[in-house]
Amino acid sequence: MSDVVKRDTVIPAAASQAPVLEREALTAREFLAFVIAEETYALPLHAIREILKPPPITPVPRAPGDVLGVVAVRGTITTVIDLRRRLRVAESPPDKHTRILLVAAEDEVLGVLVDQVLSVHRLLDDEIELSGVVGGDLSDYVLGVGRPRRSRRDREGERDTESETEEILVLLDPEPLLD
């Protein structure tokens, strides 16, 4: 988890910018942000069991196309899938940032290959646009779009604001995504 901790800039206390009244009416949810093919996605933090540096993956002949193969995680054989194939984005070779997220789906823990793990975001309800609002034909595994407030980050000054552009997280719903 070291990656996450290091980059962790928006942990609970940061949610202090919303007006008091409003904040009390809102609930916050935590998401882990990561990159796949240069897009930033995020999964609910509670669904993430572990972040692994990818061990050699054993391909499984005859497995569905988005299954990369299996790895052994402390004695348990875990299926690793490549979201790029499911999200229909271009594939890229693994590098030193590549990680496997262990995500708890309905009946098993699945490994999800990602290009890079970013940080944990604590999003208030008004920072989340649900997929219904966004419209278009988004797949059912897209929960919505997260827009963390820039202003908060600036004032905390923990990060170089210059490199930050307006950040958009595509929030994913683990159940339909991994089904």
Binding site: V60, A72, T76, I77, T79, E108, L110
Partner: peptide
């Protein structure tokens, strides 16, 4: 070790 649910339909292993 058994394969996960996601691979249950893969025959031969």
């Amino acid at each position: 070790k058994s394969l996960g649910k996601s691979l249950q339909r893969v025959r031969g292993f």
